[in-house]
Computed example of a mutant assay.
Amino acid sequence: MANIRDLDPSASPLDYYGAELRRFREAAGLNQQQLGAIIFCTGSLVGQIETARKLPTREFTQRVDAALGTDGALMRLLKLVLRSQLPPWFQPYAEMEARASHIYSFQAQLVHGLLQTEEYARAVLGVLHQDRLDDRVAARTERQRILERENPPLAWVVLSEAVLHQVIGGTEVMRNQLARLLDFRDREWVQIQVLPFEAGAHGGLKGSFTILRFDDDPDIVYSESYESGHMSANPVEAKARSLRYDHLQAAALSVEDSAKLIARVMEERYGEQP
């Protein structure tokens, strides 16, 4: 039976997407099963998405936009839908991150979210609870698309060597994650350095942080705790954090030597030579 639950389009971006999908479908004179047949899915899936019970994927949205001639309207909505799946306290940062021209980050424990494979992200996000895990992974993957756009930000990440050795998700997940880091060598706008253990005491001992730089706005400093994030545009704090980051870059291996270390750890610890 077709899903006909009424939606309040203003309740959430997901509800708005579902209401628009239904509106476009009905304007085309199609029922859920007919649309499903056209885009190679079930009518039930169309109904679940129309009633905001299931998150639409990028592939589903592309097919629906093409089938219904919406001129990309649903794809534009999808960006809002996926961002809404991020934790509420993280969403303001994600919006600033998408606007930044430069992203400088030190990561003490984990690979930066923009550089994670889907499997690594799934292991990180699923540590304590599995609810809506697919949706949360999809939202993190969508964040990474800023690195694919025509004019991407410069992303410069310093990783503690501990990040390479901390096994997240198992050996195969780590092998693929380190291979992903090596793949970024071909991207001019993504630079990765590793802070080696022998660096000893360093400017990042208090934890991970990120500096967002903009063309026309003040820098933003971001750090997070277990269940919240903190952003500040205080110029004094931004200057102090920039100095700390400069020291971390100076203490880290060069980009080329960092890649060699990543490759060595990948071979020795995870059993594969890149």
Rank of each mutant, 00 (worst) to 15 (best):
G36Q: 09
N151R: 13
L147N: 07
S84Q: 09
R25Y: 06
T42R: 14
S10M: 13
Y93F: 03
G69D: 02
L55H: 08
S10P: 11
G72E: 07
I262F: 02
L133R: 15
E97V: 01
R63L: 07
L181I: 13
V194Y: 06
Q107S: 13
G47C: 04
L212N: 12
L261Y: 02
R83A: 05
F40Q: 15
R187L: 09
L45F: 06
E161Q: 04
E118V: 11
D6A: 14
F209I: 04
T57L: 05
H129W: 08
P9H: 03
L80E: 12
E224R: 12
G207P: 06
D131K: 14
N176D: 13
Q193C: 01
G126V: 03
G204K: 03
F90I: 14
G47N: 12
P56K: 00
S225D: 14
R23M: 12
V46M: 01
Y104A: 15
A238I: 07
Q249P: 12
E227Y: 06
G36M: 07
I49V: 14
V190M: 00
L205D: 13
R145E: 07
L115E: 05
A238D: 03
L261M: 11
L35Y: 00
T51W: 09
P218F: 03
A233N: 14
R269Q: 02
K54Y: 06
A100L: 02
R149H: 07
T210Y: 03
A233F: 07
E50P: 01
Q48C: 08
I39K: 01
Q144V: 09
E20L: 11
